[in-house]
Design a binder for these strands. Structure first.
Lengths: 96, 96
DNA sequence: ACAATACGCAAGCCAAGGCTTGCATGTCAA
DNA sequence: TTGACATGCAAGCCTTGGCTTGCGTATTGT
């Protein structure tokens, strides 16, 4: 529950989510390449791998091993907890 | 835009938002007291004040000075950017 | 005016976290 | 089987950020 907010706190992890939404089921190397190409992020492979672990712990990314590859899928359901917790509707202060 | 995710990354700040949703328009001292009472959080007044600055920078809290008091209101609209960015609907991986 | 109240500013401490580096493991193709 | 490829593990560095401490400012009540 707490991992969710930590997961989306990092801009690189948010870019990873953007990437997976745009093209689901990518491997680690695919993600690394696309982050450099389209998001200007050039972190090491290990750094991205650690980010993916955090996203997986938060339930925002689903993983499946296939041979020597590991594919990643986006899973947005945990995000609903945020708008369920606070009324996102534009609540303005009432005049006093 | 980036401040939003940092703002809700901290559990104390999330508790502050919970408090303001439950009782809008509190002063700093009121918030401090209620955090101790109902959330078991006992940080110093300055710590809470700094948290409120972060929340204000993220647009999640509206502030109005009145004499020697400073009142705080919850404003949930920025949160909509999250579910607008990623489809929160439970998207599952497609079989391969 | 004076003291108490409510809050702001700024420096410093310390733990958490993001990143790198180096090595290890496992898988596939030739 | 051997080498190339895709990933995992672990230790260390270094910045970020949350918290405290001490002092300063402004407002209110008596």
């Amino acid at each position: 529950m707490d991992d969710l907010y930590r997961a989306i706190a990092d801009p690189t992890r948010r870019a990873i989510l953007d990437e997976l939404v745009q093209r689901d089921g990518q491997s680690l190397f695919e993600i690394c390449g696309r982050l450099v190409m389209k998001h200007g992020i050039s972190s090491s492979r290990q750094a991205i791998s650690q980010h993916l672990e955090v996203l997986e712990a938060a339930g925002l990314v689903t993983v499946e091993r296939e041979g020597r590859y590991k594919f990643h899928w986006f899973h947005g359901e945990p995000l609903e907890a945020i708008t369920r917790r606070w009324p996102a509707g534009a609540k303005r202060r009432s005049d006093r």
